[in-house]
């Protein structure tokens, strides 16, 4: 089964062709970083305009790379839930046109389900329900119990900023460019993670609640205080605090809920020290860590097609009437989580 997956949820235009839910035949992503750079953050109207200008080329490129034509597609999937409203509607419009013109099923996917399924693609032999998923991305920090296809239980989330958001904000404060997390990881390599003792809010609380804004404030204050500071040391210390928070909460929740398989998803999952720290902590307790292939971590169409393959077996196709939704409940149980969302 060949599925075209489309993601225009935020500021990347992604389209990919995935065969049978796991074989990634193509995965094309156009970053809009340069279009937003001078505004110091993603501007929704500009994101929407860039998606509209690029989408046809990205879709064409996804098909060409996969060496197929529209007629070969068995279904088209699109992130219609969770993201910037003005951006989502562009991908949804393209996907509906393809479903209509090719007379193939349309499958609407919650963007977070895309991130969750980035770990399941091609792993159904080793990864079994229920498992724990830590989704750490630009707009989310969530601990979910993945109960079965399309069914999730919320075990924790951030009460303020998302981990990726904080990495991006600190990186911007240091003029390091985007993605912030990657820039910080690079600088942190040569730094001392104990040079600064930054706070780790809520770390010792037994529940799954995260908080990153206090950490962000402390780090930006340290930057403002000393213009000649050692950036490597600062980044290493800051990154270590983020890692400590993520790893300790995740391990505690995994133990509490007896979930011995843990998956890491979202753009921050690219962070090598985080992957290592989680592996290390898991080994101690003989837990198993799964991370997605690197090109499935940040926003992309392949994870959307991957999720669609499994969820289509469960739910069937969606009608042409599905609408984009900025803040959408997740999964069969309609999980809602309360936190300041960057999505409007």
């Amino acid at each position: 089964m060949l599925i075209l997956g489309i993601d225009t949820s935020c500021d990347d235009t992604g389209a990919a062709v995935v065969e049978d839910g796991h074989q990634v035949r193509s995965n094309i992503v156009a970053s809009q970083y340069e279009a937003h750079e001078r505004f110091g953050g993603v501007v929704p109207v500009i994101a929407a305009r860039e998606h509209t200008a690029n989408i046809s080329f990205i879709i064409e490129s996804a098909l060409e790379t996969a060496r197929i034509s529209f007629a070969d597609l068995d279904a088209v999937a699109v992130s219609h839930h969770q993201g910037l409203m003005l951006s989502l509607v562009v991908g949804v419009s393209a996907a509906k046109s393809i479903a209509l013109a090719c007379d193939i099923p349309l499958i609407g996917i919650h963007h977070l389900e895309g991130h969750i399924y980035s770990n399941l693609m091609g792993r159904s032999d080793e990864l079994h329900f229920p498992f724990l998923c830590l989704t750490v991305a630009g707009g989310h920090t969530l601990l979910l119990k993945v109960v079965s296809h399309g069914t999730y239980e919320l075990l924790g989330h951030t009460r303020d900023d998302a981990a990726g958001e904080v990495l991006d904000k600190v990186a911007r404060h240091l003029n390091l460019g985007y993605p912030g997390g990657a820039a910080i990881e690079k600088l942190a390599k040569d730094g001392n993670p104990h040079a600064y003792s930054f706070p780790r809010p809520l770390m010792n609380r037994p529940d799954g609640e995260f908080s990153f804004s206090g950490l962000k404030t402390a780090v930006t204050a340290a930057i403002d205080r000393d213009p000649d500071l050692n950036q490597a040391d600062l980044c290493a210390s800051f990154q270590q605090a983020v890692i400590d928070l993520l790893v300790s909460k995740t391990m505690r929740i995994a133990q509490k809920h007896q979930l011995r398989q843990i998956t890491l998803a979202g753009g921050v999952a690219l962070n090598t020290p985080l992957r290592k720290a989680l592996q290390h902590a898991a080994q101690e307790h003989e837990y198993q860590i799964f991370t997605p292939p690197r090109d499935l971590c940040m926003d992309n169409g392949a994870m959307v097609a991957g999720a669609a393959y499994s969820l289509y077996q469960e739910r069937g196709p969606d009608p042409l009437s599905i609408a984009a939704l900025a803040n959408a409940p997740l999964g069969k149980t309609g999980i809602r989580y309360r936190h300041e969302s960057k999505y409007k």
């Binding site: 929407a48 509209t52 509607v89 046109s97 013109a101 090719c102």
Partner: peptide, 18 residues
């Protein structure tokens, strides 16, 4: 702004496929 993004994307994708 949004209406046109939806309409133009719909139209050009239909033309592309067909």
């Amino acid at each position: 702004w949004t209406g046109l993004n939806i309409g133009v994307t719909a139209a050009k994708t239909l033309a592309q496929v067909l």
